[in-house]
Every structure is written in C-alpha cells, then in structure tokens.
Design a binder for these strands. Structure first.
Lengths: 217, 217
DNA sequence: TGATCAAATATTGGATCCGCGCTAAGAACC
DNA sequence: GGTTCTTAGCGCGGATCCAATATTTGATCA
C-alpha cells in the first residue's frame, strides 16, 4: 500500500471535488483523522501537499481552509493557463520528436472516440491526456507541473458547474487544428490555436459560473 | 517565536542558496534534525514546504533531494516567467489603480537609488520589490505565487553565477520604459516590454551559466 | 570475476502523548 | 451597561517511540 499521507491527500482532494467540503470550510486535524481513520500526522502531511497544490489555504496556528473557488480565481487561473498553453504548444511544435508526435495524435483520436460515448468522467480524462501529451512534448517540466495543479482545480469547477458537453464539437475541432499545427512544426500557429482554445474554454466556464451565481441569489 | 518548521524551512532554503547543500544532494531527516537541533517532525514539514516551492525533489519512502539547477531548468523557468511577466504587465496596465501606480513608480525609483550603491543583496531585493509591485498590480494571485516561487529559485542561481551588474544600466532603462507603459495604461506596450526585459535577463544568465559549465570541465 | 540474492543497517512513515498558543466565554470592575 | 482581564478548552505544533520500507553490503553461486 502507498503511504497513508498520499492516500489521504488523494481522498481529501476527491472529497473536495465532490463537494463534501465546501469552499472556505475549516479542515480540522482531529476531525479528518477520525474521518479517515488515522492519526493526525498523515493528515498534516496531506494538507500540506494540498496546500502546495493551491487547493487549500493555510494560516500558521490556525489551520487549513478549503480554497474558495470563485469567478475571480478562475479569471486569474485562465490568464496563467492561456499564457502557458500557448508557450507549451509553441515549444512542442519546435521540439517535436516522433514519440511525442505519436502520443499527441493518439491522445487526440482517443478523445474523439471517448467523447462520443458521453461518459463525462472518461471524456475529462481523455481531454487531460491530450493536453498532457502536448505539455510533455514541450519538455518544460515547470510548466507541466503548474498545469497539473491547475487541472486538479479545474476538476472541482467542472464537477460543480458541468463540463462543456455542448461545446464538444468545437473542442474536437480545436484539438484537430492544434494537433496538425504541432505535427507540421508550425510553432506560431500552434501557439495561437492553443491560446484560442483556452479562451473559448474560459468564456464557456465563466458564463456558466455567472449564471449559477445569479440564480442562487 | 514562529513555528519551528517555518523557521527551519527558511534556514534550509538559505543554506541551499548559500551552497551548503549541493544540487542533487540527499537531505536526510536525522541529519537535518541534528543540524538544526530539533526532532525530525518539523524537518519533514519544512522539506514538504520546500518541495511545494520546487526547491527540493521528493520520492516517497526515499526522501528529499536538493533540486538540480542546470541550464535546461533555467530555460524552462524563463519560458514560464516570460509568459507570466508579460500577461501580468498587461493586466497591471489595464487594471491600474492610483495605489498600484504609486507602488510601481516608487519601487522603480528605489531600485535606481539602491543599485547605485553597488550592494548586491539590496539591489536584488529592490529588483524583487519592483517586479512584485507589478505582480500585485495585476491582481492575479495565482501568477504572483508562481513568480514568488521562481524568485526563490533565482536567488540560488544569482548567488551561484552572480547578478547582472554589468547590465545594470540596461535594467534601469527597461524598468523605466515598462513603468511608463503601465502608468500610461498601454497594455500592449507593457506586455512587450516585460517580455523583452525577461528575455534579456535570460540571455545574460544563460551566457554566464554556460561559461561556468565550460570552464569547470 | 561478475551477478544475484539475502540479511543487516539506515532512513522514512506513523501513532501517541504532551505542551503551547489562540480563541472565546464569563466575571469583575469602571 | 460596557469594557477589560482572566480562565478554560480547543486545536495546532513537536518529541519520542515503534513499524515499515529502502538501500547497501557481503556472501554465495554460476
């Protein structure tokens, strides 16, 4: 079995994603230790990991709170994502290797197949794998790690507000264009297409979030 | 007194910056506990924090190692920094407030004064404050936190390879142009100037690093 | 002589207990 | 009646001990 703190950090993350812990909620060590049937040491370790991933906020001697995920946070996150996806797509096109080329095209194809079956979780995973393939093709570990963190946060908002299933055709088209730009080693086009892709995703998400915020007032 | 793990994480970071621990070196709990006169629990907590900051690498059941900082890591880091500084400068120009405007211009002036005294540490701090002011003016917490992490890593390489004192006039000129673009709320110019500024810093650093690598062979 | 396996050792991971600081509630004094 | 000080309890931070896991060393066999 994997170490408890890894196990626990995964479970807490899943519970946050599934809304078991609300944004801003205080996470007490004793409570969590009881809930996950362990001592408080692995819990502290796990919360520290989640803190590093930006999922929980921390204040010394006062404990951890679930990070509030609101419209303004998402605007910030997509600003960063926009910049990073673009630079990674450019680098992926420039540094393209045969292995990376295969990884990207098969991830693209897989997404198209899986998304046709309207299994949301599988579609999300396939989408993640596609972007991961580009990220890894860029060879930029720093950017890849940031994007990985962001993906965990995006899972929370997609769970809460729904994934863009109505935009699925558009997403597939975006992926196709982006893939061929990278395979053609057209860095300029790849950068622009990646940026445009993220912009569309942002518009879609923000519209939904604002809709929910208004209707819940 | 602040909590021990915070104290310890700061001390370990400083020791890494000052080269007391080499890149790739294994950091053992018992050893560090002995060195910093504490038990191994605060050490674990401290290393976990440094891991979150990207300064040490971690493998479960095997412990932490000081992250190797080489040319390829710096290329990656500056790719990210280039993208982020540009987007933050644009946002800072768009969202400019009177308070942010004051903060940026006074940080710019302070850098010019301090750098004239050729105190390297103070110059670094002033440079950091200038970029921090823009970062905070952008209002993007996510980007600010990433840049803060990167700054800690840059302190290590500047300590090792020297800060660009010969480029000081150029840096001041860059800062002046960038500041006026932001104060004029010219987002386009601010973004381009910020990107150019980071590019110059990268060229300077990489040249130095490659020089040292060659001469140490 | 080199490779592989096993045992010993070194190191990380986890539980429990206690101390300390923060917070909040109640009483006393102004 | 309001403000401040004290006290109690609640929860985080840290030490120590023990368990689990990795790494290394040495021995045996091909």
């Amino acid at each position: 079995m994997a170490s408890q703190y890894i196990e626990v950090s995964d479970r807490i993350r899943e519970d946050i994603i599934n809304g078991k812990f609300a944004g801003g909620e205080r996470l007490k060590l004793a409570e969590l230790a009881n809930l996950y049937a362990t001592s408080h040491m692995p819990i502290r370790e796990a919360l520290r990991i989640l803190n590093g991933q930006g999922i929980v906020d921390f204040t010394p001697n006062s404990g951890m709170r679930v990070r509030e995920i609101d419209v303004s946070f998402m605007i910030d996150l997509f600003d960063v994502r926009l910049a990073l996806e673009a630079v990674q797509a450019r680098r992926a096109a420039e540094r393209l290797t045969p292995a990376a080329s295969n990884a990207i095209s098969s991830a693209k194809t897989e997404f198209e197949c899986v998304s046709a079956e309207s299994d949301r979780d599988a579609t999300l995973k396939a989408n993640h794998r596609f972007h991961q393939a580009i990220s890894q093709a860029s060879g930029n570990r720093e950017a890849t790690e940031i994007e990985e963190r962001h993906y965990q946060i995006l899972r929370i908002v997609w769970q809460r507000y729904g994934y863009a299933s109505e935009r699925l055709e558009g997403v597939i088209e975006d992926h196709r264009l982006l893939t061929s730009a990278i395979l053609d080693q057209d860095a300029e086009a790849a950068g622009l297409l990646a940026a445009a892709h993220v912009m569309r995703a942002r518009r879609n998400l923000l519209t939904k979030m604002r809709g929910v915020e208004r209707s819940s007032q």
